[in-house]
Design a protein around this nucleic acid. Structure first.
Lengths: 337, 337
DNA sequence: AAGTCGTTTGACAACGTTGTCAATATTCGT
DNA sequence: ACGAATATTGACAACGTTGTCAAACGACTT
């Protein structure tokens, strides 16, 4: 149905007066092509507007030029950050970025993984939490000998690329920010405990408390599940508690929003009566009113580096470094100015 | 790098004792294959776990088996609804669903469209608002003779499949819902005027006002831009207005959330002092507290039908019907019970 | 000037499917 | 029961790339 005539290597080769194989070499950055020919071919190709045919390439090379991101995290903001980062890095190198949800609670997740990997083989895999900690998934990928990168894994794997922030330090940094603002009675709203990063953030919280000589009994710890809803109920629990806190550290922005809304409904002023900090620097944290002070991790760059290193690994068949730590930044906004 | 051995048609053909062409026919649901052979081939294929190789298929047939959704709408909830609907319909027919952001504000959007269409040709395109009203994009697609489906277009196109709800009727229905709850002084918070659907919803609002003999001067019309932020500022404008409204109709859920939060901050009770209705039935409308009464459109089904009709069109090279209207439903929740 | 060795180039056969068209079964009409 | 018409099958050539391997070229050595 698509009527646009597509140029082939043949056309370029004829016009440039070289063999098709040389053109192929140029487009694959293969070694052993004289610079002069390389320029010639590139010039002709640009002039004619040639684009390699992916299918033929995949078929002949038995490579898919696809990196896939498996996720099971409903946070769209986080996902699109990853996707954008992957895309940018991929398209630069002629690869394609694909995202696929792999629900771990689904009985047949493994089948769908197998199915996916078999139907349209991928050259590299990126896993984000909580899948970056799923041993069964990692094993399947390893079994197929597919290069793999883990974003924020709880435990770093030697045979994978690991890309992460220091969650504990970040949690501590955020807590110290609250303390520096004069808050000495704090609440920590945790995420799911199965999410290793969440526990590490909490560890950072407690380490800050100890380091600054604050009393554990002035702190309230409430269990949440990362949802806005759990933020609402967290506030209710908070209101019932004997301790009157002035600062709340929510394990992510959605819970922060939920808690803030509940506080507003209860007639409290934010940040005058109670201050809030979140985690993730999501779009909603920015557009909430008051906007929420939140910890930003450069997720796009992290995904971009994942993709780039994965492609290097695929192309060269070896990996120089394994672990890449990224810095975080506190985005100060009105919920805790 | 992917070491899994892949079966070919050849393998199946040999084991089943037929020609490769017959196997090909079976997998393409081609006519003129005796049922007995069809079953035989299918049986062997299942037994061996055969999967057709997509690249080879694409190369030989010059079809991509890809439907692409071009969007420029930051609402992730809406997007994933569309994606899920597409996916379901596509995988049923052996097609692939792809989503690509096409930013209209980006100077080079047209290049990236061309680039995309040329690099990996697609068999069908789905456009969602606001792109479903972009003449330049539609023209490019038409020029290539690619079947195209428009979701909620402002103006229906004869040579495209149009899938939509009756926005005006929906706007009217929602307004009448407020009126039936006893609200006679209302506010309407509009979306971007470039978004045709938004104007139509507003038209529905005013038609309900007239039909029920309410006075135009008891109504407040505030211009928003679909963002949560614009919901906050809308409430400020509302507070300044002479008219004290008891019911607010926000053009989408995000603005509804913004407005509700502003109202809560101002010390108002929702829904006792002021009731709210939104539009889109997004996840946030459901998880907000109070949960927001909102108008649900079956976006997943709409996208699914788009994909299905597109595939029919591609396969048969003709189109029976053009226009498909879907029903809407008011999801009654606590913000306006 | 011939020999050697690495570098550059190209001819041709894959890759796993579908399209074309001719060959062979089957069914139908009389 | 016999052609004629139709339904089913298969052989073989695409599709546009990359892999392989041998040939041609160059720069050095001697």
């Amino acid at each position: 149905m698509n009527d646009m005539k597509n140029l082939t290597i043949q056309d370029i080769a004829e016009k440039a007066g070289v063999s098709i194989k040389t053109v192929s070499r140029v487009f694959n950055n293969a070694p052993n092509v004289r610079q002069q020919k390389r320029d010639l071919v590139l010039g002709v190709a640009r002039e004619l507007g040639y684009r390699p045919n992916i299918s033929a390439r995949q078929l002949a090379s038995k490579r898919s030029f696809v990196l896939i991101h498996f996720y099971d995290n409903p946070n769209m903001d986080y996902l699109s950050g990853i996707y954008d980062g992957m895309r940018a890095a991929c398209s630069e190198k002629g690869y394609y970025a694909v995202a696929e949800r792999l629900s771990l609670h689904n009985r047949s997740y493994k089948d769908s993984l197998l199915d996916y990997l078999t139907r349209s083989p991928v050259d590299g895999v990126i896993l984000s939490p909580p899948i970056s900690d799923d041993k069964a998934v990692i094993r399947e990928i390893e079994k197929r000998n597919i290069p793999c990168s883990l974003i924020s894994p709880g435990i770093k794997k030697r045979h994978c690329i690991n890309v992460f922030i220091d969650e504990k330090t970040a949690g501590r940094k955020m807590t110290e920010f609250l303390i520096a603002r004069g808050h000495t009675k704090l609440a920590f709203i945790s995420g799911l405990d199965t999410h290793t990063a969440s526990s590490q953030r909490e560890a950072g919280f407690w380490s800050a408390i100890e380091a600054h000589g604050l009393k554990r009994k002035d702190m309230v710890r409430i269990g949440g599940d990362f949802s806005m809803q759990s933020g609402f109920t967290a506030f209710e629990k908070l209101a019932k508690s004997k301790t009157r806190v002035t600062g709340v550290f929510a394990g992510n922005d959605e819970m922060a929003i939920g808690t803030i809304i509940a506080a507003l409904r209860a007639g409290m002023k934010v940040p005058e009566d109670i201050s809030f900090v979140g985690f993730d620097d999501s779009a909603f944290a920015r557009s909430m009113w008051p906007p929420i002070t939140s910890l930003a991790q450069p997720i796009g760059e992290m995904a971009g580096l994942s993709a780039k290193k994965l492609i290097d690994w695929i192309d060269t068949k070896e990996r120089a470094e394994n672990d890449f730590e990224f810095p975080t930044e506190i985005m100060v906004r009105d919920s805790c100015p």
